[in-house]
Write a protein that binds this DNA or RNA. Structure first.
Lengths: 235, 235
DNA sequence: ACTTTTATTATGTCATACATAATACATCAT
DNA sequence: ATGATGTATTATGTATGACATAATAAAAGT
């Protein structure tokens, strides 16, 4: 009898650890019973007895759920269900020092993709107050000097506001996550050369288009605005 | 003495739990010593003794690192350092049934942003073989019927290939992550109405532009191609 | 009625023992 | 000697029991 036929007859005994199984059971519990956010789940000991495993295993499984953002546990109240914050989880391992260079560069690229691609949502959801705030930010724009090719904080204020305008909280969180990466990549020797000082479409130019232009115009303008970054990636 | 002045004098005793501290120490250890991927880290007992805490605490901290994708632990070999897979981590909690509706809709939106914004990377990195493959995919495009507004598998094949062409692995993983979400959102009653059957720029049209056009043209074409989805969000 | 003290409770931490899987080493038959 | 088979070792996985600690509720005191 060869290996292949064995595989067919022996049907893979599950190699999953106890914790794995318990984790599965708990996740099921959460989504089946349609528990509302804020509801408490049973105590560790109760779970241990109900599932017939030790509290150790329950605790490890709960820890996993906690890391996934599915629950939060407080000292006395036990654990309560929470709505998972996807990027909050990622932010844990989003440490520039532990990511390899390829990944860092790719995150850098994704930021560019997002800002060019978000145009339609900007135009769909921008309000008058947003426009005013953008103008306010632009009016405070510091001059470009030789030492500081651009002012990081001002960049963050402007571009961050754009993410906010999209009305997409998840996207906004993503951006917050990308910030340290962007900073790191920009300053490390990861990319080919220092950006040129040539100015392309300015922040003010972008605002003008937001006020009077179209998504199409904005996409192209943003692409142009980010030219220095693209140049460092492509040239 | 009021609260404010207290805050200044008492300098925030760290409320972090033991596990929190140990986790921090371990992360430091990983990034300071510049350990290569595949290197083994000390055994649990050694760590426990070195840091002066119980093995329980060490284990919980290690579990966190494992969930962050920083290490992998095997039965005998102890734990080895791995390069964290950001989206692999997220995929753990990326279960449509545990995410709230707003988040789901926002993930849906992000997909649209990405596909419109990725144009420059497509043009920069596409190879002749990629173009051939895209043409091959398009040639097998099933006809549109009343029952199936579009064939999901074909959609995935085509758009997935685009992500692949960007050469951005992280982006590609992101897309894989988004797939079940997209499917779920599309089929659930989350969005306003069924997409219309009107055809806009086709897959073939997109390929033509990839061959002879420019990033600008592609962005606009993709925006048009996705019009049905946008309509469901905006109308 | 309001503050302070005490008791309760569920998670956090510790210690120890044993189970289990992966590996290395020793053994044996040919 | 070689290759298969058994045995020992080792580090993680699981179980158990105990105590610490923080948050809450209940009781006591003014």
């Amino acid at each position: 009898m060869n290996i292949a036929s064995l595989k067919n007859n022996l049907k893979a005994v599950d190699t999953a650890s106890l914790v794995d199984k318990v984790e599965g059971s708990l996740v099921e519990l959460l989504q089946e019973r349609k528990l509302k956010v804020g509801d408490a789940i049973p105590k560790e000991i109760e779970l241990a007895e109900a599932l017939g495993v030790s509290r150790t295993v329950i605790r490890e499984a709960l820890l996993r759920l906690r890391m996934m953002g599915l629950i939060e546990s407080k000292k006395k109240k036990g654990a309560v269900i929470t709505s998972p914050d996807l990027f909050g989880i990622m932010s844990k391992s989003m440490n520039p020092h532990v990511l390899d260079q390829d990944t860092l560069r790719e995150m850098f690229e994704i930021r560019l993709v997002l800002e060019i691609g978000m145009a339609d949502f900007l135009f769909q959801r921008i309000k008058k107050e947003d426009l005013d705030e953008l103008k306010e930010i632009v009016s405070k724009e510091p001059p470009v000097t030789d030492y500081h090719l651009f002012n990081i904080e001002h960049e963050i204020a402007f571009h961050g506001k754009l993410y906010e305008i999209t009305g997409n909280q998840t996207l906004k969180k993503f951006q917050k996550l990308l910030l340290p990466i962007f900073d790191y990549v920009h300053n490390s020797g990861l990319l080919k050369k220092q950006p040129m000082l040539r100015k392309f479409v300015s922040h003010k130019g972008l605002v003008d288009i937001l006020e009077n232009g179209s998504p199409e115009l904005f996409r192209n303008a943003m692409r142009n605005h980010l030219e220095n970054h693209f140049a460092r990636l492509f040239d």
